[in-house]
Amino acid sequence: MADVNRPLSPHLQVYRPQITSMLSVVHRGTGVVLGVGTLLLAWWLIAAASGPEAYAQFNWFISGWIGRLILLGFTYSLFYHLCNGIRHLFWDIGAGFELAAVNATGWVVVIFSLGLTGLAWIAGYYMRGAL
């Protein structure tokens, strides 16, 4: 298996980039990002269970600019994976396979994931009293 002398996946370099293939790559990418992001989720919940000091430490990290940048990546990945995941489930029941539909729903995913991320962050800043 290790010495197979033929091209192996991911084959990204042999195809012209298209909306369909790019969104597919990003779906996997955001899935991996969310996987790494579960470290943050676990930290948040375990800190809450551990006590005020541990929770303050988490709050300090997530409020800093590095924490915010990571959280921004996490929220975008969450909304993207959610929107495109719904697109995948429609394909699984056999709907939306026509090329026009695949391209159109792809752009819907791009717009919705960006829009939902923007809304969530505006609401988050509003909750903090910054708006």
Binding site: T75, L116, A120, M127
Partner: peptide, 11 residues
């Protein structure tokens, strides 16, 4: 629900 929750629990 989770997305709404983390927004509501911000700060």
């Amino acid at each position: 629900w989770f997305a709404l929750s983390i927004v509501a629990m911000t700060g």
